[in-house]
Design a protein around this nucleic acid. Structure first.
Lengths: 159, 159
DNA sequence: CTTGAGATCAAGAATTATTCCAAATAAAAA
DNA sequence: TTTTTATTTGGAATAATTCTTGATCTCAAG
């Protein structure tokens, strides 16, 4: 819940030419103009764009930004824990700013990815039992199937 | 448990030169010599090799086999449901012949992947609740962390 | 205000896993 | 056997991502 929007750490956030903005560290890294753009782009739509899609969107705001930089920003922010990297099979990584524990549902009909909340606490039951003594850093749950909307459409057709 | 070893469908299974073996379809595809080799290689060790690793192992048995063929075989067999493709992040896909529902645990210390059984039945609780009306075809659960062995070693050192 | 150190950005080359292609070969069907 | 179809192969092509290198930027010290 209470999680400071990291871009608030950026003073002087108007335009991208005017007087050079003053930067300010956020956590362990500098919230530069390009990083802010990338982050804002991710926050703007709650979908799961690939790096190239982020790149395209970022160019609207900052035409000079480079793909390499977008990759850099995404990696930095992923490490910093501001965004999550989502992988479905071996397709291009996707990124999302949803920080709550969640799984991803990939619809093979409309190719959209949606979030599915995960309820993980010491008490909730899981369908797996970990080997004694293992330490878990990351858990990734991804599902592939047909989303409710598409499923409805499919059933409709076959009537 | 009772799951016919698919290579048993191959008559004349000795050597790979002798008189041309007689082939026989298995399910929907031909169990060719190279497919048998790839499958046997996977069954031989219960680890999670990448396509290149499978390729290397397969060459011991059939020196002339090509990487493209290994990829083809793995894809065919994955579709046929004989092997599972395992993806961890965007690293090279790995393959395993464990057909039971299971998750994968990737140890960031020893880089080994191990299987974690999944108990999925209509009755078992899951930490997620699916959107009403969705149809699930595949579920992939993968974890990253430190396996019991490495964890023990780590704790040992820090004492 | 200038300078130095270190971080970040950018453009393109390089890498890596994987797929595609077209020709050769092998297996199944006739 | 002959024909038909599937499979194998080696190499080229692709796509996402990483690497490299020099330019640029920020912060803090002088």
């Amino acid at each position: 819940m209470s999680h400071l929007n990291p871009t608030e750490a950026l003073r002087d956030s108007d335009g991208d030419q005017a007087g050079a903005p003053t930067y300010s560290g956020f956590g362990d890294f500098r919230m530069t103009r390009q990083r802010k753009v990338v982050y804002d782009v991710l926050m703007a739509e709650r979908d799961h764009p690939t790096a190239s899609e982020v790149f395209l969107r970022a160019k609207h705001v900052m035409p000079g930004i480079s793909l390499a930089t977008v990759y850099n920003c995404l990696e930095t922010m992923t490490h910093a824990g501001l965004v999550k990297q989502v992988n479905v099979d071996r397709e291009a990584s996707r990124y999302c700013p949803n920080l709550r524990p969640h799984a991803h549902f990939y619809c093979s009909e409309c190719q959209e990815i949606s979030d599915v909340d995960l309820h993980l606490s010491a008490s909730t039951a899981t369908p797996w039992s970990l080997p004694e003594g293992a330490k878990i850093d990351h858990l990734e749950v991804s599902m592939k199937g047909v989303c409710p909307d598409c499923q409805a459409r499919v059933l409709e057709k076959s009537r």
